[in-house]
């Protein structure tokens, strides 16, 4: 099947029900997408499907056919970071950093839908993303900064 990932089309030979997570990591080599739980409990595997955050461990490969898949590696790069990534670096959010790809993808998707999120919006949208290092206060602060950056364009 053909998958469009971060603007590039890849031909992959996988089972229909292989989770997109493992297609991305082991078949295409996109390593920014992380495995944490495999059962939609941690959010480390979050990517965008046509701009909307999904858990790639719960998305079958076949369901991503025809969609635009965006991963943390396609959202921005170290030399050209997305506003959310910039805010994350400014606030030094990451500790171990393992959850942060998913946190950033979830936040970017939320901000696209809710440009000025209230605290309750952040609670509701971000609580599915687990951070074992406890970076939640910094995540909240970085989202506020990112929202301002995005509004300024």
């Amino acid at each position: 099947m053909q998958l469009n990932v971060d603007g590039t089309t890849h031909e992959v030979d996988v089972e229909d029900d292989m989770p997109l997570l493992w297609v991305l990591r082991d078949e295409i080599g996109v390593k920014g997408v992380k495995y944490g739980c495999g059962i939609a409990q941690c959010g480390a595997c979050t990517v965008h499907l046509d701009g909307v955050a999904v858990r790639s461990c719960q998305t079958w490969a076949v369901d991503a056919v025809g969609a635009e898949v965006t991963t943390i590696n396609g959202l921005g790069t170290p030399n050209a970071m997305h506003a959310v990534q910039e805010a994350w670096a400014e606030h030094q959010v990451a500790q171990c950093g393992y959850c942060q790809s998913g946190q950033i993808m979830q936040a970017a998707s939320m901000l696209a839908a809710i440009p000025e999120p209230a605290d309750e919006d952040i609670d509701a949208e971000m609580s599915g993303n687990l951070c074992r290092c406890g970076t939640y206060p910094q995540i909240r602060a970085a989202i506020v900064t990112a929202a301002a950056k995005l509004r300024e364009g």
């Binding site: 590696n73 959202l75 790069t77 170290p78 970071m81 910039e86 994350w88 670096a89 990451a94 950093g97």
Partner: peptide
């Protein structure tokens, strides 16, 4: 490590 950890790299 902050930029690598903010960009999935």
């Amino acid at each position: 490590d902050i930029v690598p950890k903010s960009t999935g790299t």
